[in-house]
Design a protein around this nucleic acid. Structure first.
Lengths: 256, 256
DNA sequence: GACAACCAATTGTCTGACAATTAAACAGGC
DNA sequence: GCCTGTTTAATTGTCAGACAATTGGTTGTC
């Protein structure tokens, strides 16, 4: 029976002073998972047992478990042979969390648009060479398909943005490195709220689509330098567009 | 007596079937925060009020709140004028989460060492040009200081690793983009468990320190290309070292 | 006006109970 | 023996009410 650490031999209470017990228990279990003392699929002791081990009541244990569940560290099943199990953290789940975190981070720390943009394109350009080297037909198809969608003038701004994200996602996936995909996808989607501030005119869209075309062509030709250049252009154009939006807003503000 | 329905029409229960009510409430509040209906510093209704609003008991509400607290979306204070407040998500807190998530992702999805390494160095090389352009004296000092620490042969493997992380952290910070720092630092620290599998001989360390020196010199000279090349060398050398470790283990395994 | 005692609001925790769910054990019929 | 339906036990999910701890404001006293 591989159980967690016995009551209150807190190695973490030094680093962080856990004001309430449920967070202390959560931290103990969390470190047990992160440090590998509890492995994927292992079943944690039942809530009652944990309550007894830690000398607290069941609701308190439950609060601790919910904290872990919120981080996708455990999943629970009820019924006989139910309980809390160490979860297999999928890229999917990690991705979700990454998006929430990134979104809030950007919106709450008054990160400049250009700073966020710089970070995003720096990372995206980092996968460009890999993508050019490893892209398969399916990735090119996904990119072309999104370009086709974007060319439809009837597409709403929101859908245009979504297609933009999908295009870049395809590029990143072409690098064939799931770790990069996870990191990048989080960053790109986290920027969505910022990107959607921009309202695209037809001319803007044409320009962006042309650059997307260049990127796809470069990936097709396995031309890393060309891909990099196109991404640079896209970055500066995006920042330019955003600056325009800000100017217009300022102007409207003055008119009133 | 309005039983289950939240005040607003619950749109999230369509997308994801919330098996238990506390997770449903958590999702409702979370989306309220992410979508900006609740702003930083806003106080949520008290637990009793929430319990009444959602037609559940206070422990259930508390479980929901603990979920949000685990994601650092809210913080709670007790006493008069206490309550749950929308938290200002700091880079610090986001960073913490990023590390746990990355660590678990790498350990649970049998990501190859080279894949993780590739992702890490790809991103790190992405900030190299920025770091060369913007580095200040303080960054160089931090890098030099870590190199000095690493040169001490008495340093344990663990401390050597930690200093390695600090060195790269300084390089990344030199890029002057907090978003990049946050993303990168998470990735680098998440790789720690993998990196610490390697036991460094004196010759290995000398080689690594030399490369660190090259990187610092390149940053000093604002030589982006040199920095990139040194990082590439470091990446391949790291992978080489890891391969050696695997071979040795395999050999030991056969001998028994 | 300064200081102490009190009070009210709020979170943190406990106790005990019941409902819902699920897998396994069990009984019955063929 | 084997399949089928039923019971049972274990476990999570939820509830209700209570008390403790904390914290800010209020009031009263000197």
């Amino acid at each position: 029976m591989p159980t967690a650490t016995p009551p209150r031999s807190g190695p973490d209470s030094d680093a962080t002073p856990h004001p309430d017990r449920s967070s202390g228990i959560a931290a103990a279990l969390r470190s047990a998972i992160v440090e590998g003392r509890l492995l994927v699929g292992d079943r944690l002791p039942s809530e009652s047992e944990l309550a007894e081990q830690y000398g607290v009541s069941r609701p308190t244990v439950r609060e601790a478990l919910k904290r872990l569940a919120a981080q996708a560290l455990i999943r629970t099943r009820r019924g006989a042979s139910g309980g809390a199990f160490v979860n297999h953290l999928s890229f999917e789940a990690a991705h979700e969390q990454q998006i929430t975190t990134s979104t809030l981070l950007l919106s709450m720390n008054d990160i400049g648009f250009d700073v966020a943009c710089e970070a995003r394109y720096a990372m995206e350009r980092a996968c460009a060479p890999l993508a050019c080297a490893r892209r398969e037909a399916s990735h090119l198809n996904r990119m072309r398909a999104e370009i086709a969608r974007q060319s439809d003038p009837a597409l709403g701004d929101e859908d245009f943005c979504a297609s933009d994200v999908a295009f870049h996602r395809a590029l990143v996936d072409a690098a064939g490195n799931p770790v990069l995909s996870y990191q990048l996808a989080g960053a790109v989607e986290g920027m969505q709220p910022l990107m959607s501030m921009i309202t695209y005119t037809a001319r803007d869209r044409a320009r962006i689509i042309a650059l997307h075309g260049q990127i796809a062509d470069a990936a097709h030709a396995r031309d890393a330098a060309g891909c990099d250049a196109a991404l640079r252009d896209l970055q500066s154009y995006t920042i330019e567009l955003h600056a325009t939006v800000l100017e217009q807003r300022a102007a409207r503000g003055l008119n009133r």
